[in-house]
Design a binder for these strands. Structure first.
Length: 418
DNA sequence: TCTGGGGTCCTAGGACCC
DNA sequence: TCTGGGGTCCTAGGACCC
């Protein structure tokens, strides 16, 4: 096992046998915050929080200087400000993150054809076949880190191991700005002293449940009979955790997975009690979901409504359609009925969401029972075209116009005029 | 001034079929 | 008919991840 520290000391291939550590996990360090600092170098070294600055927002990212004060992502911004009053709060710019993400992923793609993206700022690379062209895993990882820094100005950490989850654990232990290689033979020595919270799939609840039974480290987990684990955390999770604790992880690097659901949700600045406001939001969200379905050439068969009330209790209600759809109007009509069936018209609502599940490829076999679907399909297709040409703002208008007037021809008229 | 928004996977019960 | 069992689909909720 060997580590490259932040002072730029290099790991040489002679230090460690990396021939079995062919899975790399790349993780950008404080990604969103680091991207913001590219534009604001004057803030380097200071506690910076990236968050939308409103009453109910949470921390999207924080620099290491802010983390020293106990600020973490997903923490309510109000609490973060209390812990670190001198922190500078910057608005997030998701287009920028997506741009830099693309640059980093592009570098990964040039190093191996087997790259699995994980969210916006992480990726797994299978570099078993890179030896001939580039070099051993350490050589690839070092080159990757150098190129990312040179071409984006951003810093990342890399873990290399025989399996995905060990590589991911290694990258988290290498942070910030490090490289950690775990050869296959060193896997258990590396794993067993670590706290269970580091394991994939062990969050707050599972950690507490296990700790209450005296299971604190991954080694403890390994020495707990699998039947006992199954009873404690459930069948699938118990079996999985036991395997992981012994370094067993059959998952391979999967270049791309198909989307299984598409949804949008929004939290109101203050709780809403007016059903008309809720419905207007459901209409907007349905339209957004439909646009993404059509953009991806997909249709969905199950519509899911999500409501979170003033006391933070959350419910979901779903309905499976006879035939899949990609139309905002159809989605809205279903979700609207489902909403009515909840039967809480005067409740204080904090969040509403719309999601489509059971996705499949569009095209053929999705004829609808709606008599005016053709008009609406034309209208929504036109909206997509307007969106592509004039940007998203114009689409929101077209969408509202089309729905308010109630017929597709109005939306078509809008597009002609526009 | 307490809790975002995008997702995946698992569990459990009931309906329904053979 | 004092009544099994497996498989699949649907629904609701929850844990977890980034």
């Amino acid at each position: 096992m060997s580590k490259q520290d932040g002072s730029g000391r290099q790991v040489s291939a002679a230090d460690v046998d990396d021939s079995t550590a062919t899975v790399l996990h790349v993780d950008m360090d404080a990604f969103f915050a680091s991207v913001e600092l590219l534009e604001r170098p004057d803030l380097r070294g200071r506690p910076v929080i990236v968050a939308h600055d409103s009453a109910r927002s949470v921390v999207t990212a924080a620099t290491y200087e802010a983390r020293k004060f106990g600020v973490n992502s997903a923490m309510p911004l109000a609490i973060a400000k209390r812990r670190c009053p001198q922190a500078i709060v910057l608005e997030p710019h998701f287009e920028r993150y997506s741009h830099y993400s693309g640059l980093v992923m592009g570098i990964c793609d040039e190093l191996t054809p087997s790259v699995e993206r994980l969210g916006i700022d992480e990726a797994f690379l299978d570099v078993a076949g890179s030896g001939k062209h580039i070099g051993s895993p350490i050589v690839v990882a070092t080159l990757l880190r150098q190129r990312v820094l040179a071409e984006t100005g951003l810093v990342c950490s890399v873990g290399a191991a025989a399996t995905k989850f060990v590589a991911k654990l290694a990258s988290s232990r290498a942070k910030p700005d490090g490289l950690l290689v775990i050869p296959r033979e060193g896997t258990l020595d590396f794993l067993h002293p670590l706290p269970i919270s580091g394991l994939w799939g062990v969050g707050g609840k599972t950690e507490e449940t296990l700790r209450n039974r005296g299971v604190h480290t991954i080694g403890d987990l390994a020495n707990t009979p699998v039947d006992v684990l199954r009873r404690i955390v459930g069948d699938a999770a118990g079996a999985k955790l036991h395997e992981l604790a012994w370094g067993i992880d059959a998952r391979t690097v999967q270049p791309r997975a198909e989307e299984k659901s598409i949804g949008h949700e929004v939290t109101f600045e203050t709780d809403v009690t007016d059903p008309a406001v809720i419905r207007r939001e459901l209409l907007r969200l349905s339209g957004m979901v439909a646009v993404r379905l059509r953009g991806g050439g997909a249709v969905g068969r199950t519509v899911v409504l999500k409501l979170r009330f003033g006391d933070f209790t959350t419910i979901t209600r779903s309905r499976t359609l006879g035939e899949a759809t990609d139309l905002g109007r159809r989605i809205y009509d279903e979700v609207s009925e489902v909403y009515a069936a909840v039967g809480k018209p005067n409740a204080r609502v904090r969040l509403v969401g719309v999601r489509m599940e059971q996705l499949s490829e569009a095209g053929g076999g999705q004829m609808s029972l709606w008599d005016d679907d053709d008009g609406w399909r034309e209208a929504e297709d036109v909206m997509d075209a307007v969106s592509a040409r004039f940007g998203r703002g114009s689409v929101t208008q077209a969408s509202l116009l089309g729905n308010r007037r109630g017929r597709g021809s109005e939306a078509k008229g809008f597009a002609r005029d526009g």
